[in-house]
Protein backbone atom coordinates (compact mmCIF):
# COMPACT_ATOMS: atom_id res chain seq x y z
CA UNK A 1 0.00 0.00 0.00
CA UNK A 2 1.43 3.37 -0.97
CA UNK A 3 -1.19 5.77 0.34
CA UNK A 4 0.12 9.28 0.42
CA UNK A 5 -0.70 11.12 3.59
CA UNK A 6 -2.66 14.36 3.15
CA UNK A 7 -0.87 16.07 6.00
CA UNK A 8 -2.94 19.27 5.84
CA UNK A 9 -6.22 17.44 6.18
CA UNK A 10 -4.93 15.19 8.95
CA UNK A 11 -3.54 18.18 10.86
CA UNK A 12 -6.92 19.92 10.53
CA UNK A 13 -8.71 16.87 11.94
CA UNK A 14 -6.21 16.75 14.81
CA UNK A 15 -6.55 20.50 15.50
CA UNK A 16 -2.82 21.12 15.05
CA UNK A 17 -1.52 24.21 13.32
CA UNK A 18 1.65 23.18 11.47
CA UNK A 19 4.09 25.52 9.79
CA UNK A 20 5.55 24.71 6.35
CA UNK A 21 8.72 23.12 7.73
CA UNK A 22 6.81 20.94 10.14
CA UNK A 23 4.45 19.86 7.41
CA UNK A 24 7.31 18.76 5.19
CA UNK A 25 9.21 17.00 7.96
CA UNK A 26 6.15 15.22 9.32
CA UNK A 27 4.97 14.16 5.90
CA UNK A 28 8.37 12.56 5.31
CA UNK A 29 8.50 10.88 8.73
CA UNK A 30 4.94 9.60 8.58
CA UNK A 31 5.30 8.28 5.05
CA UNK A 32 8.30 6.26 6.19
CA UNK A 33 6.35 4.75 9.07
CA UNK A 34 3.29 4.05 6.95
CA UNK A 35 5.48 2.26 4.44
CA UNK A 36 6.57 0.01 7.29
CA UNK A 37 2.89 -0.97 7.81
CA UNK A 38 2.57 -2.43 4.32
CA UNK A 39 3.36 -5.99 5.40
CA UNK A 40 0.69 -5.86 8.10
CA UNK A 41 -1.89 -4.23 5.84
CA UNK A 42 -1.51 -6.95 3.28
CA UNK A 43 -1.90 -9.86 5.72
CA UNK A 44 -4.99 -11.99 5.36
CA UNK A 45 -6.49 -12.07 8.84
CA UNK A 46 -9.72 -13.63 10.13
CA UNK A 47 -12.61 -11.28 10.78
CA UNK A 48 -13.50 -12.41 14.32
CA UNK A 49 -15.40 -10.29 16.77
CA UNK A 50 -12.94 -7.92 18.37
CA UNK A 51 -12.86 -7.29 22.09
CA UNK A 52 -11.32 -3.95 22.90
CA UNK A 53 -10.23 -5.15 26.36
CA UNK A 54 -7.00 -7.11 25.92
CA UNK A 55 -8.31 -9.89 28.16
CA UNK A 56 -11.82 -9.81 26.74
CA UNK A 57 -13.50 -8.86 29.98
CA UNK A 58 -17.03 -7.50 29.72
CA UNK A 59 -18.31 -4.28 31.19
CA UNK A 60 -19.45 -4.01 34.79
CA UNK A 61 -21.96 -1.21 35.13
CA UNK A 62 -21.80 1.24 38.02
CA UNK A 63 -24.70 1.83 40.42
CA UNK A 64 -26.50 5.15 39.92
CA UNK A 65 -25.52 6.67 43.25
CA UNK A 66 -24.57 10.33 42.94
CA UNK A 67 -21.93 12.03 45.03
CA UNK A 68 -20.26 15.42 45.17
CA UNK A 69 -16.79 15.63 43.68
CA UNK A 70 -14.94 18.81 42.71
CA UNK A 71 -15.94 22.10 44.28
CA UNK A 72 -16.75 24.94 41.91
CA UNK A 73 -13.38 26.54 42.79
CA UNK A 74 -11.43 23.32 42.16
CA UNK A 75 -13.12 22.92 38.80
CA UNK A 76 -12.11 26.41 37.69
CA UNK A 77 -8.69 26.64 39.36
CA UNK A 78 -6.74 25.57 36.27
CA UNK A 79 -8.85 27.57 33.82
CA UNK A 80 -6.74 29.76 31.52
CA UNK A 81 -9.62 32.26 31.52
CA UNK A 82 -12.88 32.42 33.43
CA UNK A 83 -15.64 34.85 34.32
CA UNK A 84 -18.82 34.67 36.42
CA UNK A 85 -18.08 31.07 37.30
CA UNK A 86 -17.78 30.00 33.68
CA UNK A 87 -14.85 29.03 31.49
CA UNK A 88 -14.16 31.66 28.85
CA UNK A 89 -12.85 31.00 25.35
CA UNK A 90 -12.64 33.12 22.20
CA UNK A 91 -15.90 33.02 20.23
CA UNK A 92 -16.78 29.62 18.86
CA UNK A 93 -18.42 30.20 15.54
CA UNK A 94 -20.21 27.06 14.51
Amino acid sequence: MTDKIDIKNVAKLAALKLNEDEQQQLEKDLSMIIEHFAALSEMDLPDDKISIHPLGMSLNLAEDIASKSLTHEEALRNAPDSKDGQFVVPPSLD
Binding site: A15, N78, A79, P80, F87, V89, P90, S92, L93
Partner: peptide
Protein backbone atom coordinates in the same frame (compact mmCIF):
# COMPACT_ATOMS: atom_id res chain seq x y z
CA UNK B 1 -6.45 25.24 26.22
CA UNK B 2 -10.13 25.48 27.20
CA UNK B 3 -10.37 24.17 30.76
CA UNK B 4 -6.76 23.81 31.96
CA UNK B 5 -3.18 23.76 30.80
CA UNK B 6 -1.37 26.10 28.45
CA UNK B 7 -3.27 28.40 26.11
CA UNK B 8 -2.13 30.38 23.09
CA UNK B 9 -4.71 33.03 22.29
CA UNK B 10 -6.52 33.17 19.00
CA UNK B 11 -9.39 35.06 17.35
CA UNK B 12 -11.74 32.12 17.48
CA UNK B 13 -11.87 29.15 19.78
CA UNK B 14 -10.79 26.78 17.02
Amino acid sequence: GVRYGARVSGNTSS
